[in-house]
Simulated assay, not measured.
Amino acid sequence: MNTEYQQYLEDLFNWGKKLKTTIEKSDLSEHEKAHTLEQVDSWMDHIHHLLIDADAGPEQLIDIRAKGEQFLDQLRKSSVPYGKHQLPALPYAYNALEPYISERIMYLHHTKHHQAYVDGLNEAEKALYTNEKGKEPLKHWLREQAFHGSGHYLHSIFWENMTPNSKKKPSGQILKQIEKDFGSWNNFKQLFTRVAESVEGDGWAVLLWSPISQKLAIQSFEKHQLFQIPNTIPLLVLDVWEHAYYLQHENDKASYIENWWNVVNWENVNDRFKQVMK
Rank of each mutant, 00 (worst) to 15 (best):
D45C: 13
T22N: 14
H46D: 13
S42M: 05
E242V: 06
L238S: 00
L175N: 01
G134V: 01
F188V: 03
I52L: 06
H31W: 07
E200W: 12
L9G: 00
D73V: 10
A89C: 09
P99C: 02
Y5E: 10
S42A: 13
F147I: 15
L72Q: 11
H243F: 15
I105M: 05
A127F: 03
L108Q: 14
K180L: 03
E242K: 06
T163E: 01
T111D: 09
G172T: 04
I62V: 13
D119Q: 05
Q173I: 08
Y107V: 15
D53C: 07
H110W: 12
H113N: 12
Q214G: 09
D27G: 10
D181M: 04
L50N: 02
L75C: 05
K167I: 11
I101C: 00
T111H: 12
Q74R: 11
K274Y: 10
E103C: 06
P170L: 00
L28R: 10
D53E: 13
H46Y: 15
Q190N: 15
H224E: 13
Y256V: 04
W141C: 04
R272I: 00
S166F: 08
Q214S: 14
Y107I: 14
S79Y: 13
L121N: 06
M1P: 05
H85P: 01
L9I: 10
A89D: 15
N2K: 12
S171I: 11
G149M: 12
M44I: 13
K84W: 10
P58C: 07
T232D: 09
L226W: 14
N262D: 09
E98W: 01
A66C: 10
L238H: 00
H249T: 11
T111A: 12
K112T: 04
V118E: 02
V40N: 01
A96Q: 02
I47F: 06
E103A: 09
N268E: 15
N265R: 08
W159S: 04
E267S: 11
E32T: 03
I157Q: 05
E69R: 11
K112A: 03
G183K: 08
E59G: 12
A116D: 13
L50E: 02
K180E: 07
